[in-house]
Structure formats: structure tokens, C-alpha cells
């Protein structure tokens, strides 16, 4: 259970990132957060693992308090909350294996990690994670030699190696082409279903949100403006989230089943 109680985030620049959010995400749910850039979806996701500190209110993940946690507590929390990024964030100059083992750092002593003396059990975990995303054959290939979709699967494997209770994904498919984007989303969905890991994903594309989201949260100006199932989230709802009519750009191009009509999309 992730529980936001009256959570606000104000950045040092004065921008209000989150505006008194109240939200409960039960264990095992697949949540998709939508909204324009700057609406606060990234901030929402990053407060959950403490990458963005909460200014006021309380935020709990499981039985841990995120708001006001010290460095040590945050590290323990982050060990249990994995994160996937838009730009994959792999160390491209090193092997896929080393990248996945980055997910085991929290359970590795500093001395061991300095010399790269990974525990056999950690290497086994990394292999299983790579098998789960289907690229175990690339284990000893340099990350820079993989395609975008493969790199994002390595990033998912890194998260799985953490054995997390929660997976956060910040625009995980924004840098990928449409078929690959669908594949990565399917991977996330499958992992959520097979392992029951709570998953919170930021998405920009509406059709992906509707196809994969068990629950959809719409954000605008740092506030939650919609919270419901994928079926409830029709075009009218999206237009209210986006504050304008939908355009072709809001739908993933070349997708098999375009979910939104784009007739009125020529307006401004």
C-alpha cells in the first residue's frame, strides 16, 4: 500500500510540483499516471522513492515513512522500490550483466562492490531477471550495443534484480518506437501479473494508458483531476486532463488499434 496524505512538493525554484495530493494505491495494482508535461506526474512518481523530497504532508510506502526519512532509511526504501527511466539510464560502456547487478548494490557491501566480487546468489538473481525479460543471451554484451527496446528491457531486469515490492516507471516508452513501446508495456504488465509487484507508470500516450492501465490517474497543475478505471477514462475525461481537445500527437502513431478519434485534432 502506497498512501499519500495531503502531500505537497514545492521546488527550490518556487514551482509547486504537487498540490495536496491524497491517494491510496493498494498492493499489486497497475496504475498509469497521465497528464501534460509539467502536470506533476514525474514529481508524483519520484516522491514515492524519495528522489524528490516531500515538502509537506505524509507519504507511506508499505510500513515505511518516506516523508522526512533520513539517508539511511531512504536507501532501505529504495532497495524495495525499483525505478525505470525514460532514457534507460544504463552504463552503456559496461556489460549488461554489470548493469543488472547495479540493482543488487543495496544488498552488497561497499568493499565487495568496489572490487566487483558479486555474490553467486546475486548473479543468479540477475540471470533470472534477464531470463524473465528474454535477453539473457546478451548478458555479457556491452550495453551500448543494444537497441533502445533491449536497453529498456535491461533496465527492467535491473529493477527485477532488486526484488522490489513496487516498480516505478517514468515515461518508460517515450524514447521507443510504437511496436517496441507496446512490447515494453506488455513486459511490465506481465511482470505485474506474475509477481504481483505494485506498478506505477507515467505515460504520455492515451491509447497505451487505456490498453495497459488497470487504474488511471489524471494529473493537471500538480493536482489529481481524474482517478478511475480505464473504461471510465473516455475522450472527454482526457480532454479535461489535457485542458484542450485531443490531437493525433496524443496517440501513439502506428498502433494496431487507435483508441481515440483524431477528427477534431486539427484545431489550434
Amino acid at each position: 500500500m502506497i498512501r499519500f496524505s495531503d502531500v505537497s512538493v514545492r521546488y527550490p525554484t518556487g514551482t509547486l510540483g504537487l498540490d495536496s495530493i491524497d491517494l491510496e494505491i493498494p498492493d499489486g495494482q497497475f496504475v498509469v499516471v497521465v497528464g501534460l508535461s509539467g502536470a506533476g506526474k514525474s514529481t508524483l512518481v519520484r516522491t514515492i522513492n524519495g528522489l524528490v523530497p516531500v515538502t509537506s504532508g505524509t507519504l507511506e510506502v508499505g510500513d515505511r515513512m518516506v516523508s522526512g526519512a533520513g539517508k539511511r532509511k531512504l536507501r532501505q526504501l529504495r532497495a524495495e522500490v525499483g525505478m525505470i527511466f525514460q532514457s534507460f539510464n544504463l552504463v552503456t560502456r559496461t556489460s549488461v550483466m554489470n548493469n543488472v547487478l547495479l540493482g543488487r548494490l543495496h544488498a552488497t557491501s561497499t568493499l565487495r562492490s568496489l572490487v566487483g566480487a558479486w555474490k553467486a546468489s546475486d548473479v543468479e538473481l540477475a540471470f533470472e531477471a534477464l531470463e524473465r525479460v528474454g535477453i539473457v543471451d546478451k548478458a555479457y554484451v556491452r550495453a551500448s550495443q543494444l537497441s533502445g527496446g533491449q536497453q529498456q528491457r535491461v533496465a527492467i531486469a535491473r529493477v527485477l534484480a532488486q526484488e522490489p515490492q513496487v516498480i516505478l516507471a517514468d515515461e518508460p516508452v517515450a524514447s521507443l518506437d510504437p511496436p517496441t513501446a507496446n512490447q515494453v508495456m506488455r513486459d511490465l504488465q506481465r511482470i505485474n501479473r506474475e509477481l504481483g509487484i505494485t506498478t506505477v507508470v507515467n505515460l504520455h500516450f492515451l491509447d497505451l494508458a487505456r490498453t495497459y492501465g488497470e487504474r488511471i490517474i489524471g494529473m493537471r497543475g500538480g493536482k489529481v483531476v481524474f482517478d478511475g478505471t480505464a473504461d471510465q477514462a473516455d475522450d472527454a475525461v482526457f480532454e479535461s486532463i489535457y485542458g484542450r481537445s485531443l490531437t493525433a500527437a496524443d496517440v501513439l502513431p502506428g498502433d494496431e488499434e487507435p483508441a481515440v478519434s483524431t477528427d477534431e485534432g486539427l484545431a489550434p
Partner: peptide
């Protein structure tokens, strides 16, 4: 995480490579 759920990808991808020298 339990490792009971079988990986769903093809057999080619599931062969673990040996650590190269």
C-alpha cells in the same frame, strides 16, 4: 520475487551465455 513463474520467451533467448574471458 519468486522464480517459480516460468519465463515466457523463446528457448533461444533462455540459454545463459558463458562469461567471456
Amino acid at each position: 520475487m519468486t522464480s517459480t513463474a516460468a519465463p515466457t520467451r523463446g528457448p533461444a533467448a533462455s540459454a545463459r551465455p558463458r562469461k567471456p574471458a
